[in-house]
Amino acid sequence: MGNLRGPVPDTAPVAARLEICLWRRAADRMTTAFAILSVVLVLAPLGAIFGYLVYRGIGSVNWAFLTQTPKPPGESGGGMANAIAGSVLILAIGSLMGVPLGIGAGIYLAEFGGNRFGDMVRFVSDVLNGVPSIVIGIVAYALVVLRQKHFSALAGGVALAIMMVPTITRTTEEMLLLVPNSLREAAYALGVPRWRTTLSISLRFTAFGNQYWNWRLDQPTAALPLQIFTYAISPYDDWHRQAWAGALVLIILIVSAVAAVRFVVRRGTLGGVA
C-alpha cells in the first residue's frame, strides 16, 4: 500500500512492479465504484418518491382536479385548484417581501460588509436559517394572524419571507464574492460609480386552509402542502387519491420551477449576448 504514491522505481524487480500496477488499478476501480454507488444511493430516494407519486397520483390528476375546488366529504370529484392557486399566491407574497430584502442584505455583506457589523449580520442570518419553520410560523401568527384575528395568505407570505431572507442573503453574498475583483476594477477605472458597479456589473446577476378560491390577501388561503396533509389524514378514499394527485402536482411544480430558474440563469450567463 505504501507504494501507491510516487513513480514505480525502474530498478524494482519485474514481479514487484507488476504487483504495484495491479494494486493501483484495483484502488482506482474501487474508488470509481464507490463514487458511482454513492450517486445511486443519493438519487434513489428521489427517483423512488417521484415514481411512487406518479404511480399513485397520475390516475387522479385530470382537468377537474386542476380547475375545481374541493367537494364536501362523501361527494366524489372536485379538485385542488384553490390550493394550487393559494400556493402560488403565498409564494408570490413571500418572494415580493423576501427577495428584495435578501438581495439587499446580500449586496451589503458582499460589497460593504467587511467589518464587525457585517460579521454580526452574517451570524444572525445563519441563526435565522437554522430556526425551525414552526417557530417562524408562530412569529407570523403573533405578528399577523393575532392582529387580523384570522389566518390569511398575508400571514403565510410573511412566514415564508422570513424563511427566505437568510438563504437569499447568503446566496447573494456568495454569488457577489465570486465576481472577480478585476471586473469591479475595470468598471471603477471607467469612472463608473460604486453603486452602479454593484448593480450592473456584480449582480448579473402561514396560511390555513380554505375550501374556496381566495385572491384576497387578508383572508384564509388554501395551499397545496396543507391540503395534501388534510386529505391524507382524512378517512375518505377519494380524498386519499386526491392527496396523491396533489403531491404529484406539487413536485411537478417544484421541478418545473427549478428547471425554469436554471434555464433563465444559463441564458443570462452565456446569453448576455442574445
Binding site: S182, L183, A186, A189, T269, G272, V273
Partner: peptide, 10 residues
C-alpha cells in the same frame, strides 16, 4: 490592466 478583464456576460 495586466490581465485582460472584459465583462464576460457582455
Amino acid at each position: 490592466f495586466q490581465k485582460p478583464n472584459p465583462f464576460p456576460t457582455m
